[in-house]
């Protein structure tokens, strides 16, 4: 259980981290909390020659609000996201999802930016990012750009992050309590076999729009557009959720066959919507 040798660099600022990344290129990996990266390094599935630790870069951690937008620093830990009064009040879906990641010990070290940038297809946060309409702040030499969650997740462990860019912050529009995350955890890993994040916008007691995102059942998190459209059109939980598997090509694997996965998508979507509507 010993990672291969590497050189350790402690970044002192975002600029320093970017310089180190530019210097070492593909030989380097960025370390935040370490709970996505270190496990694969211990098994030597990843053997980076350089590790750039951004864990102590000031300004990369913390939760604030400005103008109806919640800003969460990339190295903010899951436990702090889950317990934040601001997040609970203005992005309760994120608080719920962050409280489902791994176990309490993992949540004490793992970071929101690390998990999102790792883009594990069974991770919880990507579904929340999509359902919340989050924006990723990607910082490179030339400055920052904003990428929506819908654009950010590209494929298994692949994101829109450039090789010389750092995920520095996540922005989330403040939202209501009409939300829910329903997860079926893998009994061994705790990762989501399926996780459905639902964020509803209501007016006059009725759903005016909905964002529904799914993790676990595909190569990347995905919005369930047919479900969202049905909800916006006034459908109840059951009839909206019936569309959860529409147009998705599930594959058979160790976690179950395609029809089981389609069923999980529908059942968990229904449960998440029903709870969000309560």
């Amino acid at each position: 259980m010993y990672p291969a040798q590497f050189q350790y660099h402690r970044a002192t600022s975002v600029q320093h981290a970017l310089d180190l990344m530019a210097q070492h290129g593909d030989d380097a990996k960025v370390l935040a909390g370490g709970h996505s990266l270190l496990p694969v390094m211990k098994l030597r599935f990843a053997t980076p020659a350089h590790l750039i630790d951004i864990g102590r870069v000031s300004g990369l951690s913390g939760i604030s609000e400005s103008g109806g937008t919640i800003v969460i620093g990339a190295t903010t830990r899951h436990a702090d996201v889950a317990s934040s009064a601001l997040i609970k009040a203005k992005a309760p879906l994120l608080a719920e999802v962050a409280g489902h990641i791994g176990d309490p010990l993992i949540r004490n070290m793992g970071t929101i930016g690390g998990s999102v940038a790792h883009a594990d297809p069974s991770a919880d946060l990507p579904a929340a990012m999509m359902a919340l309409g989050a924006t990723m702040e990607l910082t490179g030499k030339g400055g920052s750009r904003q990428v929506s969650a819908d654009q950010f997740f590209v494929d298994v462990f692949q994101t829109a992050l450039g090789s010389t860019e750092l995920l520095t912050a996540i922005r989330i529009p403040a939202s209501s309590g009409a939300c829910a995350y329903e997860k079926n955890p893998d009994p061994a890993s705790g990762y989501a076999i399926v996780g459905i994040a639902v964020q509803l916008t209501t007016s006059g007691g009725k759903v005016s729009s909905a964002r529904v995102a799914m993790t676990g059942l595909g190569p990347k998190p995905m919005r369930l557009a047919a479900v969202e459209a049905a909800l916006a059109a006034g459908a109840d939980a059951a009839s909206a959720a019936a569309k959860a598997a529409d147009g998705i090509a599930f594959i058979d694997d160790a976690r179950g066959n395609a029809s089981y996965k389609a069923n999980l998508a529908r059942v968990y979507t229904k449960r998440a919507i029903a709870r969000a509507m309560k």
């Binding site: 350790y8 370490g34 993992i106």
Partner: peptide, 8 residues
């Protein structure tokens, strides 16, 4: 509480 096997 942290898992000291997953902290450098």
């Amino acid at each position: 509480g942290v898992k000291s096997c997953t902290v450098l």
